[in-house]
Simulated scan of single mutants.
Amino acid sequence: MSSHVRQKPVFRFAPSPNGRLHLGHALSAILNHDMAAASAGRFLLRIEDIDLARCTPEFERCIYDDLAWLGLSWEHSVRRQSEHFDEYRLALQRLIDAELAYPAFMSRSEIKAFVRQYEVDGKVWPRDPDGAPLYPPIDKERPAAQIAQLLSSGAQHAWRLDMAKTVGRVERSLHWHEGGSGAETFVEADPTAWGDIVLSRPDAPSSYHLSVVLDDALQSVTHVVRGMDLFAATSVHRLLQELLDLSAPQYHHHRLVLDEDGKKLSKSIGSTALEALRARGDTPSDIRRLLGV
Rank of each mutant, 00 (worst) to 15 (best):
L244G: 00
A233W: 07
V236N: 11
V224A: 09
D139C: 12
D66Y: 06
A53G: 07
R278E: 02
M1S: 15
L95K: 08
R42H: 10
T234C: 15
L291C: 00
E119Q: 05
P284H: 05
D86K: 09
S181V: 12
I197D: 09
R42F: 01
C55G: 01
L72A: 13
L23H: 03
V170W: 07
S77I: 08
I269W: 04
A26H: 03
K8G: 00
L258V: 10
A29P: 05
L199V: 00
H254W: 05
K140Y: 08
S73Q: 13
H84A: 14
I147D: 09
G270N: 06
A276L: 05
A14P: 13
Q156G: 13
R255S: 12
F13S: 04
V115K: 01
R94G: 10
K8H: 04
P137R: 09
L95Y: 08
C55N: 06
P249K: 06
E48D: 15
S82I: 05
G227S: 08
R160W: 03
S152N: 13
R255K: 13
S3C: 10
L277D: 08
S285R: 10
L70T: 03
H84I: 06
Q81E: 00
A14N: 07
R288N: 05
D216A: 10
E58I: 13
L199E: 10
L134H: 04
G270C: 08
V225F: 08
P103V: 04
H33N: 09
G195K: 00
G182H: 07
W125T: 05
H33T: 06
V5F: 01
A217S: 01
S109D: 15
S109H: 14
G262V: 09
A232E: 15
K263C: 04
E184R: 12
D162V: 07
R201Y: 02
H253Y: 03
G24I: 01
C62D: 13
H253C: 06
E48Y: 08
E87L: 14
L23N: 03
L31S: 10
P205E: 13
S28G: 02
V221E: 02
L214A: 08
R127I: 06
D215Q: 02
D130I: 11
R172N: 09
L274Y: 03
G19Y: 11
L45Y: 11
F105L: 00
L246A: 05
D215T: 12
T166D: 02
L52P: 00
R278D: 01
L256D: 01
D245C: 09
S206D: 04
L72Q: 02
L151R: 04
R61A: 14
E58K: 02
E242H: 09
D216P: 01
D196C: 11
V170M: 09
E178A: 14
A14E: 01
G131N: 03
D34A: 13
Q81G: 10
D97T: 10
A101Q: 05
L21P: 14
L31I: 14
F11E: 01
S77R: 14
G292M: 06
A144G: 03
R142M: 03
P284S: 00
V225Y: 06
V198Q: 11
R46K: 06
